[in-house]
Write a protein that binds this DNA or RNA. Structure first.
Lengths: 135, 135
DNA sequence: TCCTTATTAGGACTTATTACTATTATTCTA
DNA sequence: TAGAATAATAGTAATAAGTCCTAATAAGGA
């Protein structure tokens, strides 16, 4: 089952690369449709999975919905509870945590997913303003 | 909008308390239906949300689906990729991580969610056996 | 160029969850 | 303790995110 290079697959990869944020499958679908309005939803989902398998993109599973990004190395994420913007955390992935859990539990641990929840600087400002107005 | 104590709400809380694992909303729905086959899905979902708001139960958002449990303190989770069993990690919640991310990013961080992915001891055994048989 | 088969479009389907609406029942107050 | 106000309910429809299916298409090796 050797993989073929199709126009649709390239479009999906380009779409993920073109975004600097962490788009959802549906956002990628929308972007790709803007270039080719014949591409089907199933094709986009399947290719996102394929590209994840080959390591070309990263599949970030968030507490809410799945997101994708181009970075292939492991790292943690930060999501704003108000505007739902996602960003990477500038602290390295801590593999020692996985080792520690293996020792403590007897599980075989592949990896962990660490997501911080909070408010981004923009939303903090907006909420402070709203407070002044008695909301 | 003061909250009322209803039979259905108590049933939902009892159902979460009765389980030692991390049931999904649908599992709770099934359990509650076994006691009262008139309770509606919407009521179960709504009450799980209400009980989370009041702090009576904990809402654990996993990379896959949402789960609930009675423990009200923060802690991390471990999910088996094969049988999807969830368990608590016997390592304390690290609040210092949140502080560190606040300093590094300018976000206001409420909390983090840390989920380890791996294989539970049972599934490890089963997979080892399967290997011996050349699967 | 031709053949094999991976991949596709398009739609049906599934699963988890929320929204809607008329009805019921809890709790406050007289 | 009865009656009123309204929170909560059952039941169902609707939505969202993603998977599955099938006949048609096209990539890429011989």
């Amino acid at each position: 089952m050797k993989q073929r290079s199709t126009r649709q697959r390239r479009l999906v990869l380009d779409a993920v690369r073109a975004r600097c944020d962490h788009p959802s499958a549906d956002q990628i679908y929308t972007d790709v449709r803007a270039v080719d309005d014949k591409i089907s939803r199933g094709t986009v989902y399947r290719n996102l999975n394929v590209l994840e398998q080959t390591g070309e993109i990263l599949h970030v599973k968030l507490p809410v919905t799945d997101r994708y990004e181009v970075r292939a190395d492991r790292h943690d994420h930060l999501i704003c509870s108000r505007c739902h913007t996602v960003c990477d955390v500038p602290i390295p992935y801590d593999g020692a945590l996985d080792e520690r859990v293996i020792e403590e539990t007897g599980y075989l641990v592949f990896r962990h997913r660490l997501v911080f929840e909070g408010l981004c600087p923009d939303c903090r400002k907006k909420i402070d303003k709203a407070d002044l107005h008695g909301e």
